[in-house]
């Protein structure tokens, strides 16, 4: 799993170094990593609904997919910090002053405790109930991540809205609405 997960970012990095990402490879690399992270994040959210609808279960892979999502987010953030913004004072100014970056950073911050507790030891220590409720933070984090993409689009663009729609749709599909009684 993890050895496969290393491949896309490594490939992007290779493209970036060899000129395969075009005339402005920094933004391109940053955007591709961000999009990749969002795609895997959506895969994480899709595991449960997929099992319910089709019976196909990737439940065993879900935690690993979550860790991969976090790793991609870290790479995305690292490219932004080191290659893109570069200037320290500008980094903080961006986080505070630019709402789309604030939202993106908030998503990252929510993911940190989830990544830290993604091991079996944490699961045992917290107990399944507390661990599960902590990991419900996945949902707000996913919404913020998709929102981050929507907010940075120039003009009215479909693609980021599709991602946001998928995230919201998958989360909504888990909410079992209480059955209406005939009397109501």
């Amino acid at each position: 799993m993890y050895s496969i997960a290393v491949m896309p970012p490594a490939w992007f990095l290779w493209l970036g170094l060899s000129g395969g990402l075009g005339a402005e490879p920094i933004k391109e690399l940053e955007h591709r990593l961000g999009e990749l992270a969002l795609q895997v994040f959506i895969a994480v959210l899709a595991v449960r609904p997929l099992r319910e609808w089709t019976g196909v279960s990737f439940l065993k892979l879900r935690r690993a997919l979550g860790v991969v999502t976090f790793a991609y987010v870290c790479l995305h953030l690292l490219v932004w910090l080191v290659l893109d913004v570069q200037i320290l004072s500008e980094i903080w100014a961006d986080i505070v002053k630019r709402p789309y970056i604030t939202v993106g950073m908030a998503a990252f911050v929510l993911l940190v405790p989830l990544a830290v507790t993604s091991n079996n030891l944490s699961l045992r220590k917290l107990g399944p109930k507390r661990w599960k409720s902590l990991h419900r933070m996945t949902y707000p984090a996913a919404i913020l991540a998709a929102l981050h993409f929507v907010m940075l689009a120039k003009g009215f663009q479909i693609e980021p809205l599709v991602y946001l729609g998928l995230v919201l749709g998958l989360i909504a599909s888990r909410q079992r609405l209480p059955r209406r009684t005939a009397a109501a």
Binding site: E24, L29, E90, R98
Partner: peptide
């Protein structure tokens, strides 16, 4: 005068590769 979503203080010339400075 910043763009509301990003600063306009710096720029990056395209074509400078992955480690291009602002």
């Amino acid at each position: 005068r910043d763009h509301p979503r990003w600063s306009q203080k710096f720029e990056r010339r395209i074509g400078g590769g992955l480690f291009s400075k602002k």
